[in-house]
Structures are given as C-alpha cells and as structure tokens.
Design a protein around this nucleic acid. Structure first.
Lengths: 132, 132
DNA sequence: CCATCATTTGCATATGTGTGCATTTACACA
DNA sequence: TGTGTAAATGCACACATATGCAAATGATGG
C-alpha cells in the first residue's frame, strides 16, 4: 500500500482497533473459504439452474429424461449434472444403464445455512462502519 | 417426452400426488426465481470473491486502495466493484473524486436467508423421494 | 481556467467454458 | 456373445466475459 488515501485522523492503533482488525480478518478468511466452494460456480449457470428447477418439479430423473426437456444435447446435460454432483447439489444413483439424479436437499441446506451464518458474523463490522 | 423410462407402476394420479406435484412446481418456481438473481453470478468469479474478502478485512475502501492490493488493472477492479454493487453485495459512496465501497451486510444476509428459506421448503420433497 | 488525480468507459484481446457431434464405454437383453 | 440403448468423453468451435491499455469523464486545488 503506497499512496493510500486517509481522510480520517488515521485512528491511533488502540487495542480496540487492533482487535477489531483481527476479527475482520478472521471473518474474511471464513467467508472466502466458503464462498470459494463449488456451490456458487455450479449455481451461476442459467442452464444448471434450470436443471435444478426441473429436478425440483419432477423429482428423481435419469439423464435422458432431463435432456428430453431441454434444447441442448444429452451430453451437455450429462456434463451439467456432473458439475451439480461435484458441487453436492444433486445425488447420483446409477441403476443399470440409467443414471438417476435428485436434489441433495440436506446438503444444499447445510451449505446455505453455513454461508448465511458466516454472513451474519460479518454484519456488525460492515454496517456500522465501526472505527474507520 | 418420447421414450421416457418408467420403472415404477406409473403411480395412478391420485389427489395426493397431484397436490404434491403442484407443491413441487411452486417450490421450483420460487427457488429458480431467487437463484436467477445477480448474487450468484457476482459471487462465482474468484477475483470478485477476493475483493469481497478484502473489503471484509479492510473495511470501507476506495477503488484505488482496493486496486493497489490486486494484480489487475484499476479499471478491472472498478468494473468488478460495479458488478458487486449491481448485485447488492456492496454499497457505493461517492465522496469527492474518490468512490468508496463497503459490504452491504444487511442486504447480503437478507438474500442469503431468503435463499436458505426457499431451500428448506424443498427439503421434504427431494430427500424422501416421496412418490416416484 | 488549467493541471492533476481518481474513476470510468471504449475497444481489442485472452481466457474460460458451454455446446454439438462423433466416438467410446457401460450395461441389459436376446 | 452380439446387438442396441444410455451415458460419458474427446475434440473442435462458439460465445461470454475478464483483462489491459488508451482515452474520456468527473472533481479538486492551485
């Protein structure tokens, strides 16, 4: 940090600001850790969201059934489902030559709750503008 | 749907399954609606996550200060911050020729809680495998 | 009013990834 | 064991978008 703009009086580094800083840093680490998960990457693709929507509405389905309801090739749907599976969004259940997928609700909820919890932790330090 | 695989006995459409189907469909619509928000698209980009992390650790900062801590050009950081602002992740506060950003904790939490709540609604219908 | 700095925007390019087709693999059934 | 179907994979290509540089815009201070 070279020419950092410092409009305030450079708040003398009291014990309190040092502690606040430590807390911020930890919150940042915790938050980024969970934000780096594959969940967001999996769910930021429109087609994958549509697939999640389909599985919610129709329940457990095999690749072919899902693909039959989409314009893209079955191979594309297969890949999308693989990504969703990697991210823990869906459960995979191979049965004969058919591969069935269904939402892994428990896992999704657990992830979302963890993220929400982390977000709650950083609330007090970004809204009140605390010390700086 | 042409050659759909139908392993079960095609569950006679009782009132109950019809209702369950309606509930599923509504949950799917609600879920997809919130998943289509800009939040996920904003948070699936690694650099943007890093910026969020930085703002969490360092608090309110202007574009230049953020950019000074990243390898990419200031214009790139500016654009990323704009995307985060569009998504309601950060608040923008123009002050003179400096533009400050800070996490909009309240908004993030509200969004996350809304998503988590929607996910909870679809839990019972995807884990028990219900009727199909 | 001009000089300067912070930020944004226009544009060209690099990079990631979604997509389709062809092929391969996995599996069931005859 | 051979044949057909479902799913996965290799590959080439299209498309979205992240990136850097240059120029424009906005704002302060002389």
């Amino acid at each position: 940090m070279s020419g950092v703009h410092r409009p305030e009086k450079a708040a003398a580094a009291t014990n309190q600001t040092a502690r606040a800083r430590a807390i911020r840093r930890r919150a940042a680490r915790d938050l980024a850790e969970i934000l780096d998960s594959k969940l967001f990457k999996a769910l930021c693709e429109p087609v994958r969201v549509d697939i999640v929507k389909f599985l919610t509405a129709e329940g457990r389905s095999d690749v072919g059934t899902v693909a039959a309801n989409f314009s893209q090739d079955a191979s594309v749907i297969s890949r999308h489902l693989a990504v969703l599976h990697e991210a823990g969004v869906v459960r995979r259940d191979k049965q004969g030559r058919h591969v069935f997928f269904e939402l892994d609700g428990a896992h999704i909820i657990a992830q979302m709750e963890a993220i929400t919890e982390r977000c709650r932790n950083l609330a007090p330090m970004c809204c009140t503008t605390a010390n700086d």
